[in-house]
């Protein structure tokens, strides 16, 4: 899973839980990773959050994957320590209001979230107040569909206990209490995302074929389509392999596969 946090203190519970190591290559943002998770620490503010999100998609993972913005926030109503999912993210200077689609099955609070340029101390509405989520969404929505972009916040201050100054210890403590919840959210997003992907066997076969034969750009497209169809139409992988073994060129393989698939094209 991929996470964007503003501060190291917010990332710390994840770094410890997932045993992440700091990447050593030069980078505009600190990045902590293992083979399954990445955390990018953006620094404070929506511009930073936006840049860090962009950086993650272009330099760290290079491919669309689910992403979570995690951090502390003020709230006009919820108690200190309460986690909530942002369901409406606005910034008063921005026309775009974001509505992260409700895809998570969790029994936790839902709330609107206003991203502010300076820390909010008035808590005028019963919503959350942070400094990053809007910038995070605007960048993430350019790389992946909105269902897989979620903002999870933990209340650090509210009208009865207003913000005095950022306390790294408190941030780590509050978020650290909920690492299981964070893991659950990450798993739900990952599983939903995986359901949408083609069977990895197809990708494996495409890779194998490409290393065996040369395909033109158009043939590449055909190859992917035909293999996808072979899978959808229930052709046995051994039959595909058999065709492959009988074909002396990529072109012949595509042509024979296409012919053989004709018999499968009627819905059972």
């Amino acid at each position: 899973m991929n996470f964007i946090t503003a501060f190291h203190a917010e990332a710390l519970p994840l770094i410890e839980k997932f045993q992440l190591s700091k990447r050593t290559e030069a980078s505009p943002f600190p990045v902590f990773s293992n083979d399954r998770h990445n955390v990018v620490i953006s620094g404070m503010g929506r511009a930073q959050a936006s840049l860090a999100t962009q950086y993650l998609f272009t330099e760290v993972i290079n491919t669309p994957e689910p992403i979570i913005n995690l951090g502390i926030a003020g709230h006009g109503e919820l108690a200190i320590g309460t986690p909530f999912i942002a369901n409406r993210i606005l910034h008063l200077d921005e026309k775009a209001v974001y509505y992260p689609p409700p895809v998570l099955k969790l029994n936790i609070a839902n709330s609107g979230l206003q991203t502010c340029d300076i820390p909010e101390t008035k808590y005028s509405h019963p919503i959350g107040y942070d400094m990053e989520a809007h910038g995070f969404c605007s960048a993430a929505y350019r790389s992946i569909t909105r269902e897989f972009v979620q903002s999870i916040k933990f209340v650090s201050d509210n009208p009865t206990s207003p913000l005095v100054s950022f306390s790294p210890n408190l941030a780590s403590k509050i978020i650290g209490t909920h690492v299981e919840l964070i893991e659950e959210i990450a798993n739900q997003l990952k599983n939903t995302f995986q359901e949408l992907q083609l069977d990895p066997k197809i990708y494996k076969m495409i890779k194998e074929l490409k290393s065996t034969y040369h395909f033109t750009f158009t043939q590449d497209y055909q190859l992917e389509k035909l293999l996808r169809h072979a899978y959808s139409l229930g052709m046995h992988p051994n039959d595909v392999t058999h065709i492959l073994n009988q074909s002396s060129t990529g072109k012949i393989f595509l042509s024979v596969l296409s012919q053989k698939l004709e018999a499968f094209r009627t819905l059972p």
Binding site: N87, R88, V97, Y99, G112, Y141, T145, R146, E147, L196
Partner: peptide, 21 residues
């Protein structure tokens, strides 16, 4: 959960949503 909006298009219309999900 009730979420207010100014116009339904803010939620319904943006591209980059996944119908299947």
């Amino acid at each position: 959960i009730r979420i207010p909006c100014s116009h339904y298009k803010e939620i319904f219309n943006p591209s980059g949503q996944n119908f299947r999900v």
